[in-house]
Design a protein around this nucleic acid. Structure first.
Lengths: 185, 185
DNA sequence: GAAAAAGCCAACACGGTGTTGACTTCTTGA
DNA sequence: TCAAGAAGTCAACACCGTGTTGGCTTTTTC
């Protein structure tokens, strides 16, 4: 990757995140993007198919970074449950500029769902050991419930400019999750 | 409303729901819609601003119908909590053709969130009486958590063609909610 | 049965799309 | 260092969906 190519990609990335503060991805045209980035439209098409393609590449990088962060600490302890959530909250607090755009109002809601799915397998494995009597199907539903609950709280947290600490919020979320879960034991 | 107008609106509505099975609203053009409905494009603009306007009118009708249903039974008992959820699940099971399109994959995710917000005020009032020691701010977060959890389970339920009964699913959801909630008392 | 409402049709300018070819500028490696 | 080639610029293009218009036909209403 040339310096030129790096510059082009960097500036397009920056412009997309900028424009996404004011409108959703489907209202952002290639023309807008290139005007803001001061890049020729033809150059855009040399790297990306459309604005959505660019967005997905940004998302892929974020996801990779989150997974890397989780693996770093999660290697020794259990990455399945509590750790994952509080790490995720920390990550968001640190990268709040980026995350506020990607996860909030005009962001890609499906992407957050995808992120929460990282912990799925490990989590279900843990739960099955905890409560072998509860059928797997039901545990899947419970996972869906908590994952979506966490997403909702996360979005609200970011909309409110991260007023509470990451620890406070992740504790509340964990209490809801395990409080609900224990009622099945 | 003429018979002609009624026909036009009905057929456009039908076409939108049909097209939304295969792609999200932002990929549906006025042209597509009119071709499918066999309606002149000019006629569409006489009634709606764009496809999103048409979608919102459909959503408004659904919301009204849900609220009417809830008021009917909710008038005498407490509409705040359990009743609302199981009624909602029943409603979806009955209107599953419509709901599967509106709430699922290519539907408007924000709309479901709006639906769940109907119970917000009543629910928070109930919870405050139940647990006067928990600050309102925290109860708001808990509401956000459970509402989004329910949405997640609902979507999964519909994607899986409503295999479990409405009662089974709404019970599970309620157990998660109140199990989590009780851990705060 | 006439007035008015609703719909049909063709045409229009507009704007974003995706691609092309000829060109300049930058980068890399022998 | 300098030539090859990679990357970007620019102007132009046909294409397509948009939103609106005016003249016309059909349906509804009183």
């Amino acid at each position: 990757m040339n310096r030129k190519v790096r510059y082009t990609k960097m500036v397009l990335r920056k412009s997309l995140l900028m424009l996404m503060r004011n409108r959703p991805i489907n209202k952002i045209t290639v023309k807008d993007l290139c005007a803001d980035a001061d890049i020729n439209r033809g150059t855009f098409y040399a790297h990306y198919r459309d604005p959505y393609d660019l967005l997905q590449q940004i998302e892929a990088e974020i996801q990779e970074e989150i997974e890397r962060t989780l693996r770093k600490r999660g290697g020794s302890t259990q990455p399945g449950t509590v750790d994952v959530v509080s790490e995720l909250f920390d990550f968001i607090a640190q990268q709040s500029d980026l995350c506020r755009v990607m996860f909030s109002e005009y962001g890609d809601t499906e992407f957050l769902r995808q992120i929460l799915f990282i912990a799925h397998d490990q989590c279900l494995q843990d739960w099955q050991q905890m409560m072998p009597r509860v059928p797997l199907e039901r545990l899947e539903m419970i996972y869906r419930f908590t994952a979506n609950g966490i997403i909702g709280v996360l979005q609200d947290w970011m909309r409110g400019d991260l007023q509470e600490s990451a620890e406070t919020v992740s504790r509340l979320v964990m209490q809801m999750t395990y409080g609900g879960l224990n009622s099945f034991v």
